[in-house]
Design a protein around this nucleic acid. Sequence first.
DNA 1: CGGTAAGTGTTACTTGAGGTAACGGTTACT
DNA 2: AGTAACCGTTACCTCAAGTAACACTTACCG
Lengths: 227, 227
Amino acid sequence: MARTVKGPDARRERWKGHREQRRAEFVEATIAAVAKKGPDVGMDDVAAEAGVSKPVLYRHFTDKSDLYLAVGQKATELLMDRMGPALLADGPIRGRIAGIVDAYLSVIEENPNLYKFVVKGSFVDRPVEKDLVAEDKNLIATTLARILGDYLRSFDMDSGGAEPWAHALVGMVQNAGDWWLDRQTMSRANLSDYLATLIWHAIDGLLRSAGIQADPAQPLTPLRLVD
Amino acid sequence: MARTVKGPDARRERWKGHREQRRAEFVEATIAAVAKKGPDVGMDDVAAEAGVSKPVLYRHFTDKSDLYLAVGQKATELLMDRMGPALLADGPIRGRIAGIVDAYLSVIEENPNLYKFVVKGSFVDRPVEKDLVAEDKNLIATTLARILGDYLRSFDMDSGGAEPWAHALVGMVQNAGDWWLDRQTMSRANLSDYLATLIWHAIDGLLRSAGIQADPAQPLTPLRLVD
DNA sequence: CGGTAAGTGTTACTTGAGGTAACGGTTACT
DNA sequence: AGTAACCGTTACCTCAAGTAACACTTACCG
């Protein structure tokens, strides 16, 4: 009798890990199928690529858009794994900027097909309720806004522009990245440097306009006031 | 005999203007239908909105994506009518920047639904061969690159960055605009000013780094060398 | 005025891809 | 032995894009 207490049924738990692994496997299959047949593959194609027939796919994903979201999640992970450290890294400001920009560019350079697939989003017919790309951009922009706001406040400057500026910077890097990905007319290092230069000058200009002379080779944090 | 030379047949020409007018009418109907039923309207809905049945629509548009392109074209016109003058306008550089940015923001502010419809592009199932949004961005970026390149060259500076910077600026304004359109937490004038400030500082910084002191209140052209 | 080339419009169909029903087999906990 | 989870299949349903076929109108053409 007492043994029935030990949990609903071990059979229910037995597969927990397995299901996730299977989903991941289908996500990979989708990416592979997209690489082969372009971004407008069908569910049949994906299933075939996974060596399986359609209903199996639908046991693991409720929907085409569910599958799309899973692929997007995977892409988000790839991106954030690289962006996170770059965003949090400490050090000279100019170098930090270049690091963040280059982290982004390296990810899209290494996974151009996946990137386009997720961003264009033409895989799903109906608009998806959860816009992963927008969420990612928001997450990055929010982080950036915090960093930037802190930075400005550390100089006792008005930080009202931090949020719009953060979103502006995100769009800036993304669009420049898109352009670069299409016609690769310069090296990644070159582009990173151009963009970092632009961003640094913008920030430097903001500080100058408040009468502050910042050194691009100096880290941010040491400058922070000790409240 | 000689009269047969005067053209194939007047009956063929009779409708030329009419067809275009009809297309425009359906484009309007599409915009209206989208406003009513969200961005995932069907062809039936559009036809109904126009007070007509589906095959009529298909006499004027080969395709759903053809209709989408026509709507996009219309949007492009709206945008370019406002951006063109702003881009070509002469005057103090700082004001020019603000003018260009504000021109863009005013268009998306006045036509938010149309803007989202065209940019999200979820109306078409299959990816469209002609990416209008990309084309528009390219056109603007190219114009910007020319202006910026000329400006830098007028100071005998390296203009290699003009192209990536132009694309960066386009993405910057677009993304900030998207963010602003979603949560309208500040006035348009405010955002324009923030963005213009950022851009001006970036440009000013580039010049400074070359030892040039530019005045934001001075127009560009007078500065140009007289070759 | 008869012929014809454009247009107007309709209802009823075909097609293709997303998604489901219903069925049977396998594994391993209870 | 029983059963709860999975594996997998073929054959179907559904819905929206796009088409076929048919009928009527207008006005140029000879």
